[in-house]
Design a protein around this nucleic acid. Structure first.
Length: 510
RNA sequence: CGGGGUGUAGCUCAGCCUGGUAGAGCGCCAGCUUUGGGAGCUGGAUGUCGCGAGUUCGAAUCCCGCCGCCCCGACCA
């Protein structure tokens, strides 16, 4: 009997919802399209924040903070940018409420002269500041980052994957020229790749987005793409080289060494709470989430087998001492997070709560363990042997000595499992569009696992690319990216038969 | 915003066709029993049946409108 009522195989979207609820990650809020992130889910985000923040600072960036509200006129400054975001904007138009016929409404007499938009991203207001901060080549590069909430009025929302309001980090930088800005763009992409793989145990493919998938206003957009357990792709991070588009629109110029006024080259890059959706769909199983140890808010949870008797006190003391000893250890670069669950509930229920949340190591310690100086535990990533729960027992001193290694091994095992799945499910033997049609079909069962394909193409642009997009759309496919790692020679374009110049990944996507 | 589904207790759902005092299981609370693993027995609490307006003596049930959620499409981190 599994801890969730629905399995991945039966109904993947339902299973996803079940994990979010049963692992106590988040719930819907009264605010349409926005969610309440609960402690276990927010704890994962806090771990993501602190580690990513460290890596961002380590590479020469500083944090700052811009306002939530942006003057409406700002968004209009870059043409592609407006087109990309205008359709999903929340607008603030009044500054006062008034009871009209007993109903509170925006006071018609309190309409703002210029409305504000709630930021969907901050390029425009940050560009405005950059134009004032940057005067000389000596001011460059300018490498800044902010942690913020943003809002995009999405038609259809899904917990963590696409919500109207979401949390993210947005890096914005300015440079003297394209070469320097491109170095920065690729640096950010590499930060995301290594972070996703090392810390979230999510293997990804880093590459460049095709022209039609670029960020509005970008010259080049790069992404990391992860494979979910239903074979669909999740864009888990993006990095953009913006060229001089925003510099032109907002007059970001510096005086170069020869005294000339020169346009700066800018970049922007971000990852969001969507990463948590990626963690769920990469590592979850039919018993709930398996939280990668590096981001688990609690890495070792100790459940004492309390029986409501006097000897409980000894058992609690034993568990508290064990937690303290574990807490003094260091793992993944910070203090080990151990927790004793003394909630007045049945031990079996507590165990399953932690299984669903995906605490990496769950210790179940009874009086006999305490008396013998041992620790009985289950490993969340290898919970079962057949249908039965597999438990392990170690002498207490050995458990403490091995705790760090157990967590590191689990992190590595989760990554290896996902990496194997990714590599086993990218087909690279398709040469024509007919091969794609045969593989993905049009009549296939909804949600059937299809994986990704890696094919050659001639990189058409403009109308020709539009047509490629339409043909793929008929199969519910999109081009994810052109991986950075490319072979030396190419075959023929699957779309046109012309000589190819690049390999691309094609997949169904979130 | 278009197509499909759905909305009844904290959760999963029955009841609706054929109108007549609101149900089950799980969970929750209390007591007792049990105690190395998702326990048993007994008792108990919990609902403006998504919202609004109709038809009717009477609406969870029929009609109309609106809204939320889920899936698909369009759009996107």
């Amino acid at each position: 009997m599994h801890a969730l009522k629905v399995t991945r195989a039966e109904d993947f979207p339902e299973w996803y919802q079940a994990v979010v609820r049963e692992a106590d990650l988040a719930e819907l809020s009264p605010t349409r399209g926005s969610m309440i992130i609960k402690p276990w889910g927010y704890g994962i985000w806090e771990r993501i924040q602190s580690e990513l923040d460290r890596r961002i600072k380590e590479t020469g960036h500083e944090n700052y903070y811009f306002p939530l509200l942006i003057p409406l006129s700002f968004i209009a400054k870059e043409a592609d940018h407006v087109e990309g975001f205008a359709k999903e904007m929340a607008v603030v138009t009044h500054h006062r409420l008034k009871a009209i016929d007993g109903v509170l409404k925006p006071d018609p007499e309190a309409e703002l002269a210029e409305p504000f938009i709630i930021r969907p991203t901050s390029e425009t207001i940050i560009g405005d500041a950059f134009s004032r901060w940057i005067k000389s080549y000596r001011d460059l590069p300018l490498k800044l980052n902010q942690w913020a909430n943003v809002m995009r009025w999405e038609m259809r929302t899904r917990m963590f994957l696409r919500t109207a309001e979401f949390l993210w980090q947005e890096g914005h930088t300015a440079h003297v020229d394209e070469a320097d800005a491109m170095d920065e763009t690729m640096l950010a992409l590499e930060i995301y790749r290594s972070f996703a793989e090392d810390f979230l145990a999510i293997p990804v493919v880093a590459g460049e987005k095709p022209e039609n998938e670029r960020f509005p206003g970008a010259v080049r957009t790069y992404s990391i793409e992860a494979m979910m357990q239903d074979g669909k792709a999740l864009q888990a991070g993006t990095s953009h080289y913006l060229g001089t588009h925003f510099a032109e629109a907002q007059n970001i110029r510096y005086q170069d060494k020869d005294g000339a006024q020169t346009l700066a080259h800018t970049t922007s890059w971000g990852v969001s709470t969507r990463l948590i959706g990626g963690v769920i769909m990469t590592h979850g199983d039919d018993d709930g989430l398996r939280t990668p140890p590096a981001v688990a808010p609690r890495q070792i949870v100790i459940v004492p087998m309390l029986r409501g008797k006097p000897e409980d006190a000894d058992l609690k003391a034993y568990c508290a001492a064990l937690a303290k000893e574990l807490g003094a250890l260091t793992v993944f670069g910070s203090g080990l997070r151990a927790f004793v669950d003394v909630k007045d509930a049945k031990p079996a229920d507590k165990r399953w709560d932690w299984v669903r949340r995906g605490a990496p190591l769950i210790c179940e310690i009874g009086p006999r363990d305490a008396a013998n100086g041992q620790v009985t535990f289950i490993k969340r990533n290898a919970l079962r042997e057949g249908e039965k729960i597999k438990s392990h027992t170690l002498a207490r001193a050995d458990f403490v000595a091995q705790a760090r290694q157990l967590l590191e091994a689990m992190q590595a095992e989760l990554f290896a499992e996902a990496k194997t799945r990714l590599e086993a499910n990218i087909r690279a033997d398709f040469e024509t569009f007919a091969d794609l049609e045969r593989h993905y079909g049009t009549e296939d069962k909804e949600g059937e696992f299809k994986g990704w394909v890696r094919v050659c193409w001639s990189r058409p642009t403009g109308a020709a690319l539009e047509e490629v997009g339409e043909r793929l759309k008929a199969l519910k496919l999109t081009i994810r990216n052109a991986p950075l790692a490319q072979p030396a020679a190419f075959g023929k374009c699957v779309f046109t038969g012309a000589p190819a110049v690049e390999e691309i990944l094609i997949a169904r996507a979130y």
